[in-house]
Structures are given as structure tokens and as C-alpha cells.
Write a protein that binds this DNA or RNA. Structure first.
Length: 478
RNA sequence: GCCCCCAUCGUCCAGCGGCCCAGGAUUCCACCCUUUCAAGGUGGCGACACGGGUUCGAAUCCCGUUGGGGGCACCA
């Protein structure tokens, strides 16, 4: 952008109780764009649908955004020069604009009730014709109008789409776009209860809050010409628009709850790292060109560019996100990983000593795609009542009690309790029996950890301690 | 039904007229490494939707067909 005014863009969600990955991606692209240009990123809460939005939903939204590391410069709580940033607190603004539109002849009172509109829509659909508003109240005669008013009929304010116009704009990702105004239907701007609708509130706020760029999902592309017409009738200078391709589920329909995990909160709770989620989302519908896939936040900010946003929808690939999360997990320092593991373990009901976890961290780092796998991998360290699962029992029975007793004896007699020493003792046992490590170590693993899958055995035993190791071997032998 | 958007491996991307009988990643399979499981390494399967043009030359440009997506609410 060569514009001299600083970039201002926003994420303007309707809080629904959770932040959807599609919303998160939109927020991320706005944030990247703002940060790349040294601009301002605004959070605006679009809560005009009063019966659906709750304070708690707003909390969850903000928590998810913060978790992702998408900080905003203006918004609810943090404030800013263009507040308030919750639309329910801005109704006087919208009401005045509504009056201005009506006074200028750009909007008219529509007396159709929601029921009537619904019935007509269904009828139109059944007939196979366009379901939109037919414009009947726009053509009301003075006497008809007077009759409705006398009747005390409630009315909504409807924007009058000018006829025979071409609305043109240059979308920053789609390129030049044109809509014929005749394909647009008159839309409600103020509901009969006085509240504004999306088209009005969002448009007015984009102007009032000085937005230079509106980056949003492609599902809103058709609302752009309507808002442009609205701005024109208000004499306002419109922002630039950029419409992002949608994120789809495996069935190629718009990603939604029924596709499974789509809430950012879910990924937080299931052991995903925000950096991994951000990296994955950034590459969903955008690419800096080339084959690289792992980018730090700073690198993303530096490389971000609207012109490289793809034009077609992208299917959300949970497996690839998992892989990427594993990559980020492995990049963590042992200390960093340990701190996170303590939280995860506590949540899983395995309160753990940070000193032990610190030593366990390198043992599990390569064995997890997500943090929430840690409890099952490390449980044997934190509780002594480890029941043997089916496979573990089979492994133990295969070698018999006497084998485990000898293992216990040898380990008990060991001079130093270190991983190499333990490995040495186990190897001696294995050799004496003419076994190999795979066959000879597995029963020990099974007896001590209760499973046939665990972190490396000598290191695990070293961490567990001699006493507990020996006790478990003897108990399994009994 | 009408309006709009789009089209490269199953999936995400690279490619922006010759470097491409198409490259990377993920998934899946095999092998190597190996104390289990992983991680890592190597290799393999796998795509330019179709038809017309334009051009010396097309995955790249144009048109059409087909296919996919979105929208057409007193939801946002």
C-alpha cells in the first residue's frame, strides 16, 4: 500500500460462544496485515443480535484471540479513540444514520411483518423464483402508507437500492468486481425494534472507526455492493475490501461444528501450541511463495501480503495441523516443555513434581503430536497402582515370574542407578537368557509401566527410582 | 431459480508462456535406524477437470462445458 494514511483494519465477529477456526483465520489475516504495515488492529464486537450474544461469549472470544497471540490495539476494555467497540453500545449512532437515510430518501418504511416475509419467501422458493424482498412497501401509495400508520403497524427501515446501476470495486484479493444493482434487493437497515442490522451497523462502524481495509470471509462478498451503495448515499468514502476464500470441511461444505473440532478453545484444551495453530492457519489460503512451511510469527508478519491469498476455498486438514504441532513441540526447550507438561498433567489428574517432569520432558518430546498425550505416556511415574493392560499382561506371562524376579535381583544389586548402568544390567540378563533386547526388555517395560508402549526403558527406570522399579517387578512376578 | 466466486496429487500449497513427461508438505505404503512407541533418514503411489481457441511453444492467456463453493433473512 502506498497510501499515506496508516493502515487500520479490524476483526468484527458476532460472538457465538466460541471462536471458530474460520473466524480465527480472518482475525489472523487482519492482524498480520496490520502488523506488516505497522498499522492498527481493532477488535469490534458485533452483538446486534441481542438474543444470541452473551457476555460469556465475548469472554471466550477474547480469551481465544489472546491465546493465539493476536493482540488488538483498540477494542472493548482496551478502549481507543473510536469507541465504544461493542455495537450494542452504539445504537444512537445507527439510529441517527437511519434517520439520515430516511430523510434523504435512501430508505423507506417497510410494513411487512416477518411472518408475511417468510411466507412470501417460501412461496417464491417453491415457485423457483428469487427469494428476496419484492419491494412492495417501496411502491406504497400515500393512502396505503397512511392506512398502515393509522393502524399503528410496526415498521422496519429498508434501504432503497438504486435501479440500473453498476457497483464496481477493486477487491484486494479477487481483483476488479462488478455487481448490477438490479440483482440486489432492498434490505433492512433498522429492525422494527429499532436495532440496526449487520449491513448498517458494520458499514457505519467501518466508516466511523476509520477503517482503511476490510478483510473478511468470502461469504460477505455479496454484501459489499450493498454497503458501497449505503456509503454512497451517506457521502462516505469506503474502505478497501479483501475477501478471503472460505475454509471447508472434509465434505467440502463450509466448515462448521458438525465437522468436529472447529473451536480454537478445543485446540487449546487438547494440547496444541498457539504458534502451531497460527502457522497452520496462515498457510490455509495464503502462501509466501516457495516450498517453506514453518514460519515464526515474526516471519509471517514480514512476509504477509494480500496478493498471495488464494482465490479458492481450502479444506481444513486436521492431520496436517497435528503434524505441524508436533514440529513445534519438538522445537520447545526441555524447560519450556516441562512447564507446559505440569499444567497438562494437573488437568489430567496427575499432579506432578516439576523436577521430575523436567527430566521426563526430553523422553516424551518426540513422542507427542499434542501435549495431551503426555499423561498416558508418563502416568507410570506418578502413581504406583499401575494396572497391566492386556498386552502388558501377555508380555509378562510369556517370560514368567522367575524372569522378572531375576531382573529385580540384578537391578537391586546395581552399584549406581543410572540409565547406562540399568541398560547394562538388563543386557546381561538378556544375554544370559539368549534373548535380544526387543524380547528381553519388553516384559520389564510391561511390568513397570503397565503398558507395552513407553518412553525409553533405561531412562524411564532411572527416573522412576530403584525402589519403585524393583517393587513393581516383584509384584508382577507374584 | 437468480447473482457472485473458483478449478494443479485424497488434502494444503509452489508454478504467474519455454527452466514442468509439473516441485514441496501432509496422509498412506515400503525400507533403514532401533529396547517398545515415536522422531529421523531413504524410496514409492498420487494431480495440471474436459473441449475449443491464441502462440513457434500453455498447467500458465481467452471462450465454452462440467464440477465445486458462497450469497439471495427484521443472522452476521
Amino acid at each position: 500500500m502506498s497510501d499515506s494514511n496508516p493502515v487500520r483494519c479490524r476483526f468484527a465477529p458476532a460472538p457465538s460462544g466460541f471462536l471458530h477456526v474460520g473466524g480465527a483465520r480472518t482475525a489472523l489475516f487482519n492482524w498480520l496485515f496490520a502488523r506488516h504495515h505497522g498499522g492498527v488492529f481493532v477488535l469490534r464486537v458485533e452483538d446486534t443480535d441481542a438474543d444470541r450474544v452473551t457476555d460469556e461469549a465475548v469472554q471466550v472470544l477474547e480469551r481465544s484471540l489472546r491465546w493465539l497471540g493476536l493482540d488488538w490495539d483498540e477494542g472493548p476494555e482496551v478502549g481507543g479513540l473510536h469507541g465504544p467497540y461493542r455495537q450494542t453500545e452504539r445504537y444512537d449512532v445507527y439510529r441517527k444514520v437511519g434517520e439520515q437515510l430516511a430523510a434523504g430518501g435512501h430508505a423507506y418504511r417497510c410494513y411487512c411483518t416477518p411472518e408475511e416475509l417468510e411466507a412470501r419467501r417460501k412461496e417464491a422458493l417453491a415457485r423457483g423464483s428469487a427469494p428476496g424482498y419484492d419491494g412492495r412497501c417501496r411502491r406504497l401509495t400515500d393512502t396505503e402508507r397512511a392506512a398502515f400508520e393509522a393502524e399503528g403497524r410496526p415498521w422496519a427501515l429498508r434501504f432503497a437500492i438504486p435501479e440500473g446501476r453498476d457497483v464496481e470495486f477493486d477487491d484486494l484479493v479477487k481483483g476488479p468486481s462488478r455487481f448490477a444493482s438490479d440483482s440486489l434487493r432492498d434490505f433492512i437497515v433498522v429492525r422494527s425494534d429499532g436495532s440496526p442490522t449487520y449491513l448498517l451497523a458494520s458499514g457505519v462502524d467501518d466508516i466511523r472507526m476509520g477503517m482503511t481495509h476490510v478483510i473478511r470471509g468470502e461469504d460477505l462478498l455479496p454484501s459489499t455492493p450493498r454497503q458501497l451503495l449505503l456509503f454512497e448515499s451517506l457521502g462516505a468514502e469506503p474502505p478497501r475490501y479483501a475477501h478471503l476464500p472460505l475454509i471447508l470441511g472434509p465434505d467440502r461444505a463450509k466448515l462448521s461444528k458438525r465437522h468436529g473440532a472447529v473451536a480454537v478453545e478445543w485446540f487449546r484444551e487438547h494440547g496444541y501450541l498457539p504458534d502451531a495453530v497460527v502457522n497452520y492457519l496462515a498457510l490455509l489460503g495464503w502462501s509466501p511463495g516457495g516450498d517453506r512451511e514453518l514460519f515464526s510469527r515474526q516471519e509471517l508478519v514480514e512476509a504477509f501480503d494480500l496478493s498471495h491469498v488464494s482465490h479458492h476455498p481450502a479444506v481444513f486438514d486436521a492431520q496436517k495441523l497435528e503434524w505441524m504441532n508436533g514440529q513445534y513441540l519438538r522445537q520447545l526447550s526441555d524447560e519450556d516443555l516441562a512447564v507446559r507438561l505440569v499444567d497438562v498433567l494437573a488437568d489430567a489428574g496427575e499432579p506432578a513434581d516439576i523436577r521430575v517432569v523436567r527430566q521426563a520432558a526430553p523422553l516424551v518430546k518426540e513422542r507427542m503430536q499434542t501435549l495431551d498425550r503426555a499423561p498416558e505416556l508418563l502416568r507410570f511415574l506418578f502413581r504406583d497402582d499401575v494396572p497391566l493392560d492386556e498386552r502388558a499382561r501377555a508380555a509378562v506371562e510369556k517370560v514368567g515370574a522367575e524372569y522378572l524376579t531375576e531382573a529385580a535381583d540384578r537391578l537391586e544389586a546395581l552399584g549406581t542407578w543410572t540409565a547406562p548402568a540399568i541398560a547394562g544390567a538388563l543386557d546381561e540378563l538378556v544375554q544370559a537368557r539368549g534373548l535380544n533386547r526387543t524380547k528381553g526388555w519388553q516384559p520389564v517395560r510391561a511390568a513397570v509401566t503397565g503398558t507395552t508402549v513407553s518412553p525409553p526403558l533405561p531412562e524411564s527406570l532411572a527416573l522412576l527410582g530403584r525402589e519403585r522399579t524393583v517393587a513393581r517387578l516383584r509384584r508382577a512376578a507374584a
